[in-house]
Every structure is written in structure tokens, then in C-alpha cells.
Computed example of a mutant assay.
Amino acid sequence: MGLLFLIPLTIGLGVSYLFKNSVNDMAELTSLFTVACLIVSLILAPWQLKVVVLMLAILTPRRIQTFE
């Protein structure tokens, strides 16, 4: 199993670290870049990891809050 999907994931994690330590304008740019890196890493991930992520998304209970 290739580990090529870890490259954009680590770049995204590094950018998210910069997000916590930057000013507002730079924070918006880094948050967009982090989301893009995470999406690319999910695209490059092997199908076994995608199945695990899908199962976590399906089995995680959702809390529906209604405001009355």
C-alpha cells in the first residue's frame, strides 16, 4: 500500500499549525489550503482507509437540535 496520500495530509497539518499562529487574513487562506490538502489526501488514500472513514461517518450518531 502506497503512502503517497500522507504527503498532502502532513502539509495540511502543517498549514493548520500556521493557522493557529497567524492573523485574520492569513488564517482564511491557510484554512482553505488545509481543507484542500485534506480532500486531496482522501482522494489519494487507499480504498481500505476510505471504507473506514465511511463507516465512521455512518456509525457516528448525529445530534439533531431543534430550536423552539
Rank of each mutant, 00 (worst) to 15 (best):
L38Q: 02
F5T: 02
Y17T: 07
V40Q: 08
G12C: 02
I7E: 08
W47L: 04
V40K: 08
P46G: 10
I7Q: 06
Q65P: 01
T30S: 04
V51H: 00
V51T: 00
P8T: 01
I43C: 09
A45C: 14
V52P: 00
I64C: 09
G2P: 13
L54A: 14
I39A: 15
L54P: 00
E28L: 12
P61R: 04
L38Y: 14
L42Q: 06
Q65I: 11
L38C: 08
I7H: 04
N21V: 08
I43V: 15
T60S: 10
P8M: 03
F5K: 14
A57C: 08
I43H: 06
E28Y: 15
E68S: 10
A45P: 02
L44Y: 07
M55T: 09
V53N: 02
G2K: 15
F33N: 07
A57Q: 06
Q65H: 08
I58G: 01
F67G: 07
V40Y: 09
A45M: 13
I58S: 01
Y17M: 03
V52H: 02
I11M: 04
Y17I: 08
I43Y: 15
P46H: 08
L42D: 04
L9T: 06
V35N: 11
L49A: 09
T66G: 08
M1C: 10
S41L: 02
C37N: 12
P46R: 09
F33T: 13
D25C: 01
T10R: 11
N21Y: 11
M55G: 02
F19Y: 14
K20N: 14
T10G: 08
Q65M: 07
T66P: 05
Q65V: 13
L44F: 12
T66Q: 10
E68G: 14
L9H: 09
G14K: 00
A36D: 06
F5W: 15
L4F: 11
A57R: 07
T34H: 07
L18F: 08
S31T: 05
K20F: 14
K50Q: 04
L3A: 12
G12K: 03
C37H: 05
F5D: 10
T10P: 00
F19K: 05
V23C: 09
I64S: 11
V15D: 04
A57K: 06
G12F: 03
R63I: 15
L54C: 07
A57I: 04
M1I: 14
M55V: 12
G14I: 02
D25K: 10
T34L: 02
F33V: 15
V51A: 01
